[in-house]
Computed example of a mutant assay.
Amino acid sequence: MHLLKVIFTGLLTCLILLPGSAQSGVRWLSFSQLADSLKVSPRPVFVDFYADWCTACVRMDRRAFRHPEVVRLLNDRYYAVRMDVESPDTIVFGGQVFVNERLGRVNPIHQIPLLMAGRRGKPFSLPAMVLLDEQFSATARYFQYLSAEQLIEILSD
């Protein structure tokens, strides 16, 4: 009986810890971590801008970013960066300081997503994803829900 209790407790612990620790499986970086990584080993960058209130962003997190092939491609080929567009954080990146000048207003979008995923003449919208090459130049921008299959196609090119 004692052995069964130990096994059951071990299995229960694994079931509790695995989903929380694995979450999406993508090794998301912050912009400060990205700066350090790019210095050591340049590679393409995938940036996902999101907000907690964005239903398409939440759906992508629950579906597309948990698909094993999406996880593999992002972790093997890219530095994957995720940023809450309403972040109040001051971020130093590329020798520049970026802040959220719009805190306290409606739609307080941080400077970084406005610069990287803003579109001339159109309001900022989510979800927003940006692909960058090794020189940190934007090669593609996406402003809609992308399924796992669509992401796989984009990330495989």
Results as ranks from 00 to 15, higher is better:
R82E: 11
R82W: 06
R59F: 06
D48H: 08
N75R: 05
L74C: 05
P88V: 00
D52M: 06
R72G: 03
T55S: 06
L74S: 06
M60P: 05
P88I: 01
G95S: 15
C54I: 10
R59Y: 08
F46P: 01
G94M: 10
A56D: 11
V58W: 07
Y79A: 01
A51M: 09
G94L: 08
D76H: 04
N100Y: 01
R102E: 03
A56V: 13
A56G: 03
T90Q: 06
D61F: 03
R72I: 00
V70P: 06
M60G: 04
L73V: 02
R63D: 11
D61I: 00
R72S: 09
C57N: 05
V85S: 07
V81S: 05
Y78K: 11
H67Y: 12
A51N: 11
F46I: 11
V58K: 15
V81Q: 15
D48R: 04
F93G: 02
L74D: 09
Q96P: 00
Y79I: 04
E101R: 05
C54W: 11
G94S: 13
Y79R: 00
A80Q: 13
P88D: 07
V47S: 14
E69F: 01
V85A: 14
R102Q: 09
Y79D: 03
R62I: 04
D52I: 12
T90V: 07
W53S: 12
E86K: 10
D48L: 01
V45M: 11
A64N: 09
P68E: 14
M60S: 10
L73Q: 05
E101H: 06
R66A: 03
F98E: 12
D89N: 10
R72Y: 05
Y50I: 01
D84W: 01
M83D: 05
S87G: 09
R63M: 05
Q96D: 14
E69Q: 14
R63Y: 05
S87Q: 15
Q96C: 01
V70S: 12
C54V: 14
D61H: 07
V85D: 06
V71K: 08
F98K: 05
V97E: 10
W53K: 12
D48Q: 10
R77I: 00
T55I: 12
T55P: 08
L73T: 06
A56S: 10
E69Y: 02
D84S: 00
I91C: 06
D61A: 13
L73N: 02
R102W: 05
Y50R: 02
R62D: 08
A51I: 06
V81C: 14
D76E: 12
R82V: 13
A56H: 15
F93H: 03
R77L: 01
R63P: 02
C54D: 11
V81M: 04
Q96M: 12
F49T: 15
C57I: 09
R82G: 09
M83T: 09
T55Q: 09
L73H: 06
R63G: 13
Y79N: 00
L74Y: 04
V92K: 14
E86S: 06
F46V: 13
F46D: 07
A80H: 13
R72L: 00
Y50S: 03
W53F: 09
R102F: 08
D89M: 12
F93E: 02
A56W: 12
V45G: 09
V45Y: 13
V85I: 11
D61M: 08
F98Y: 07
